[in-house]
Write a protein that binds this DNA or RNA. Structure first.
Length: 271
DNA sequence: AGCTACAACTCCAATTCGGT
DNA sequence: ACCGAATTGGAGTTGTAGCT
């Protein structure tokens, strides 16, 4: 990145010219690395710093004298920024794509490797696999993104033969392991039990409810009817099922709701 | 698998720096 | 005097190599 900046610094570019270079070329370079690896924070900080200096000074050697904080520059134009991608969040969005792949692109060689070596042969073990010092740094980072992807990877319950009772996201209550506080008691249900295994002769084999949460679950169970089709994972964002992974969409989802600024339309709309 | 010492990383706040 | 960035140092956390 620094080499790129230095090769441009000899030319006199306008502010918007430099902005465009950052948004296209530099984003292109970083996205390549972002898509395969989780970058260390210090690394991202350095790249941001280089971009900031280049934007305001035109080269990377002089001391930075930014008029506006980089944090503000990374807002969208509607939010009062310049629409440069926030690297940290972009990196996260790219890496969530790897998590998405594990579930929805099983034919990839990397996913097969991940499934066999890390997940003990089944994607369903993803939720219960804990980071370990025997795994690589990246693998552990991906496992730690679990809580972020969890609400997006839901399971459509059909015959219940694949759905893991405790960890799959199949009920309206999310992860039952957390919802029922199962770290203390698992109600006699094995950690890898499938939903179907709890239904025998048309009745749910669950102990009588002893908490409100358990009661909620039991009343929900009476409303469902298993079919004879296989269960399937599906990808959804804020309640909307998605067929593809859209890095940009996830990026904005991760950024959260940021207030827009009323002068943006006046500044950016074409005359 | 567990322990230990050490390295690496992350976060935070205080301070310094350059520029206007 | 003020602003944002950079630097610094300390505290706490996490990861790793080497050992038993």
């Amino acid at each position: 990145v620094k080499a790129k900046f230095n090769s441009w610094s000899v030319k006199t570019l306008s502010f918007s010219g430099r902005l465009l270079l950052i948004k296209t070329v530099i984003s292109g370079i970083t996205t390549f690395w972002c898509s395969s690896f989780i970058l260390p924070k210090a690394c991202i900080k350095k790249i941001n710093s280089l971009c900031s200096t280049f934007l305001w000074k035109g080269d990377t050697d002089s001391r930075n004298s930014a008029r506006v904080a980089w944090e503000t520059v990374t807002l969208t134009k509607e939010q009062g920024g310049l629409g440069v991608k926030d690297l940290l969040t972009w990196n996260k969005s790219c890496c969530l794509r790897l998590n998405w792949k594990i579930f929805f692109r099983p034919d990839s060689v990397w996913v097969s490797w991940f499934k066999e070596v890390i997940l003990n042969g089944s994607v369903h073990n993803y939720w219960s696999t804990k980071p370990s010092s025997t795994y690589s740094w990246l693998v552990n980072k991906l496992l730690k993104l679990k809580s972020v992807v969890y609400p997006m990877i839901r399971l459509q319950l059909q015959n219940g033969k694949m759905a893991r009772f405790w960890h799959d996201n199949w009920s309206p209550f999310g992860c039952l392991y957390d919802y029922l506080g199962a770290s203390a008691t698992r109600l006699g249900i094995p950690i890898n039990a499938t939903v179907a295994s709890l239904l025998r002769d048309g009745a749910w084999r669950l102990p009588p409810a002893r908490s409100e949460h358990q009661l909620n679950l039991l009343s929900f169970l009476t409303t469902i009817q298993l079919t004879d089709v296989d269960d399937a994972y599906y990808w959804e964002i804020e309640g909307t099922p998605m067929l593809r992974y859209e890095t940009g969409r996830i990026y904005h989802y991760l950024r959260g709701n940021i207030e827009t600024v009323q002068w943006a339309s006046a500044v950016w709309s074409p005359r």
